[in-house]
């Protein structure tokens, strides 16, 4: 697929912008974290589009964000499961 550019994104409505970014991010995240890829992609889509574009171009920044998202997700799930 052709690379996603800032101008392509700018031409799309806001919700479609996240869709486009998610479509590109998801396969990269699956490669890193197959079990949680859908959740992690959902989390990362909260981030600014410009930063998401940067992550698509920079495997290191994507990896560090994915690691961060996993930590947040695990903390969130641990909180959900533990009794008061």
């Amino acid at each position: 697929p052709e690379p996603l550019t800032a101008s392509m994104l700018a031409a799309a409505p806001p919700m479609d912008q996240k869709q486009l970014l998610g479509d590109r991010l998801y396969p990269l995240i699956v490669a890193q974290q197959p079990n949680l890829a859908g959740k992690i992609t959902g989390m990362l889509l909260e981030i600014d589009n410009s930063e998401l574009l940067h992550m698509l171009e920079s495997p290191e920044s994507l990896k560090s964000k994915v690691d961060e998202a996993i930590a947040v997700l695990q903390a969130h799930q641990a909180k959900d499961c533990s009794p008061k």
């Binding site: 919700m15 996240k18 998610g22 479509d23 991010l25 998801y26 859908g38 959740k39 889509l45 909260e46």
Partner: peptide, 26 residues
């Protein structure tokens, strides 16, 4: 029907439209 519990985070599924976060008010 709508679930009354908030599931966080919403899961991105390739090939399905991304609905985003229900509590985001643009």
């Amino acid at each position: 029907s709508h679930a009354n519990t908030v599931t966080w985070p919403p899961e991105f599924r390739p090939g399905e439209p991304w609905k985003g976060y229900p509590n985001i008010d643009p």
